[in-house]
Nucleic acid binder design. Sequence first.
DNA 1: GTCGCTTCCTAGGAGTCCTAGGCATATCCT
DNA 2: AGGATATGCCTAGGACTCCTAGGAAGCGAC
Lengths: 197, 197
Amino acid sequence: MARAGLTTERVTVAGAEVADEVGLDQVTMSRVARRLGVKDASLYTHVRSLEDLRGRIALLAADEKTVRIAEATAGRAGRDALIAFAGAWRDYAHEHPGRYAATQAPIRIDPDLVAKAPGPRRAIELTYTMLRGYGLAEPDLTDAVRLLRSAFHGFVSLEAAGSFAHRRSPQQSWVRALDALHTLLEHWPPPGEGDSR
Amino acid sequence: MARAGLTTERVTVAGAEVADEVGLDQVTMSRVARRLGVKDASLYTHVRSLEDLRGRIALLAADEKTVRIAEATAGRAGRDALIAFAGAWRDYAHEHPGRYAATQAPIRIDPDLVAKAPGPRRAIELTYTMLRGYGLAEPDLTDAVRLLRSAFHGFVSLEAAGSFAHRRSPQQSWVRALDALHTLLEHWPPPGEGDSR
DNA sequence: GTCGCTTCCTAGGAGTCCTAGGCATATCCT
DNA sequence: AGGATATGCCTAGGACTCCTAGGAAGCGAC
């Protein structure tokens, strides 16, 4: 009986593929094992548990998404960088819905694993870098980063859940939302009582 | 043997309680049955399947959240309404994390059930009502609604996932984000090439 | 009281996660 | 090259899950 040549990496990728194809909640040990032509018990040599596998998928996704964003924003600044950043984010979520869902799922991930994975931290750094051109200073910078991340994540989540049922296409709303966020970053309001006009 | 007096409503509420206490993915037929002092098979008289139960929890949550928002925004306008709306949204997510997660989970919900539940549709209407004071016209209105919903949902999702690990408290960022969104709604950019300054 | 409907039960099949222990295969050492 | 060691994948099985089928016990109507 020939060996299947499994490895933690291959199991994780197979799990990510299952997640993208049929949803994150369908990522089960037996299903991943079937895809790899192997019995489910065999996976436990490479992965501690189902929870562990899901965590690895989440980290894989975070890393991949970060790389995409880094490539897209390289050499860009200001408005161009914002659009490239957001576009890469949304494209990744569309292409890999299961992986993307894993990044948001309530999973306890092994801290050692997180420490090794550069994705999440680097994603934050990239956001700060992108905002450099807008001239924001702390703590406004952190607040702006959080708002942008919220808007991006919220948009693709609602989109994936089918919450944009209105006639207008999500794509159009997306473009206009980025317009609006760009404007907002250029006119970030000062602290204190928010005045009108 | 006395009857437990189950009903679809009671089963749904029990499921929602389990979701809030230990997470949506821990909502299982057996667990809900144990909480109700009943065998799991008994639940199938009131609920079609686990998927059906999850869908009902999602609709329950949508309705509850909508009611909260309606109460909070009643009689308010402009900035006050925006803050009350967003605050009610976030408070509900904090108080009922499992229910809130259900509203976002990838669940196929019985269309007939959805038609009867006023929550989702009314939530959208409330958002439009809240924005009335800002003088936006279609299609900007729809785009603004979508951006706001994205920002609110994204913020509470990231917050729940522990993605705001920076020193600055999420609460402070939340207040400033609402400042920023209020400003943005007052200066919603015109279509076309987004200019700077 | 008795009939009939609903509720809740017991029993059981199929699928899931995970552990324990065994055999076969790859790798290293001389 | 051949043997020792380590590793990969297996079978077997327990505990738990969802869900169905069919039976018994409580409730309301008459």
